[in-house]
């Protein structure tokens, strides 16, 4: 029993030593301590906004149960977007009140996205819509870049 406990402790220590070495020497090292509160996901959680990954977004897209909202700039939307997505650029939201009004009539829950995990336009738009009273919304966190990268359908506006 004592010898077994000793072996367990050795394994735990060896693993700790390897971890220390690997994360010091290997090229793909990450910081030991990170401020996760700055991440978009964390900010969304603080605002009680549901966050979904690519897999779930694809599932919702396929069953056509949700309305996709593209929060990127109009030019980015024109160059390619998730099919059937509505363009509602956060940066110029003031110019799109008609579209926002129509969202109140829509019974479909919304999925808001921007470019990638680091852009905050989708989150800011989600917060804005939430403040206006739209509660059925989710933030698709992986963004359009991953959608395209993993073979999701893309539509272009001519």
């Amino acid at each position: 029993m004592k010898s077994l406990l000793k072996k367990i402790v050795i394994l735990l220590f060896v693993s700790a030593a390897i971890t220390l070495l690997a994360n010091t020497l290997l090229p793909h090292r990450i910081p030991w301590i990170e401020d996760w509160s700055n991440h978009i996901e964390s900010k969304a959680a603080q605002k009680k906004i549901d966050v979904i990954p690519l897999r779930t977004a694809i599932d919702f897209y396929q069953i056509k149960s949700h309305r996709f909202i593209d929060a990127r700039a109009a030019e980015e939307y024109a160059n390619g977007h998730i099919p059937r997505a509505l363009s509602l650029p956060f940066q110029t939201l003031d110019h799109h009140f008609e579209k926002v009004e129509k969202l109140f009539d829509s019974e479909m829950p919304l999925i808001i996205y921007c470019s990638n995990r680091d852009c905050d336009d989708a989150l800011l738009l989600a917060i804005e819509l939430q403040n206006m009273g739209i509660t059925q919304l989710s933030l698709y966190i992986d963004g359009f870049e991953r959608w395209k990268e993993y073979g999701g359908s893309v539509e272009k506006t001519k």
């Binding site: 394994l11 060896v14 693993s15 390897i18 971890t19 994360n23 990450i30 030991w32 301590i33």
Partner: peptide, 13 residues
């Protein structure tokens, strides 16, 4: 991050 790094190597070991 500490947990993620350690768990990965502990699992491997």
């Amino acid at each position: 991050n500490i947990t993620a790094l350690y768990l990965a190597w502990l699992e491997f070991t």
